[in-house]
Design a protein around this nucleic acid. Sequence first.
DNA 1: GTAACAGTTAGATAGTTGTACAACTATATA
DNA 2: TATATAGTTGTACAACTATCTAACTGTTAC
Lengths: 107, 107
Amino acid sequence: MYSTGPLLSQRQFEAIAKALADPRRFHLLETISGSEDYPCSRLCEEFPVSKATISHHLKELLRAGLVEAERDGQYMHYRARRDVLAAYSATLQERLAAKGLPVLPVE
Amino acid sequence: MYSTGPLLSQRQFEAIAKALADPRRFHLLETISGSEDYPCSRLCEEFPVSKATISHHLKELLRAGLVEAERDGQYMHYRARRDVLAAYSATLQERLAAKGLPVLPVE
DNA sequence: GTAACAGTTAGATAGTTGTACAACTATATA
DNA sequence: TATATAGTTGTACAACTATCTAACTGTTAC
């Protein structure tokens, strides 16, 4: 869906920033990240929201590229894309770096 | 892991994530970050939104701790807090790390 | 003083979004 | 086939938010 080069496109950058901004959605991502592979049904059990809401948040995380999904029969499994997170972090630092300013004072 | 700096509180973490999620607000922060010190009046000139909107966004960036402000007579000057950004980045990576999973296969 | 400029705050509005319920699709099993 | 379970999607609504204008505070200059 998205390229995962060193820096992210503006579109994906914005999608990720928005995806990370909701605490519940972040917690879902955090939970998925805690395992190699996480079944959607367990998320539905563990979070006190409807499965429609879970589905909505997972869709946003997918759209941002922060997770990937795999179907296994009836079940959906989600996996965190740590490379995409790393790319987001790198893009953040790069875009907010002090451009043209020396790291240490030059004399 | 080396000195990544301290991790952020949940409250600040959420405030930062939300502050970064709006593209216009991010662009303001990006602009401020491009210089050592940025006057509010220049932001008002350079962004096609009212000064009330600029003020609103700067307030959110301040609340998140991503910028600091200083008054100079009539003028307000803003400065990016790169240490806070770094702490956010570190917290992000830490919280979304694969806990209990080896980075490299252990034998 | 008063006029002009810089910035904040209050109130209104339009648009966004997190959420639930209900209806739907998809897969599995009897 | 029928029934049950897993997940998605449409719809609606309440809460939130980005934005504006207008009124306000604070500072400088006349």
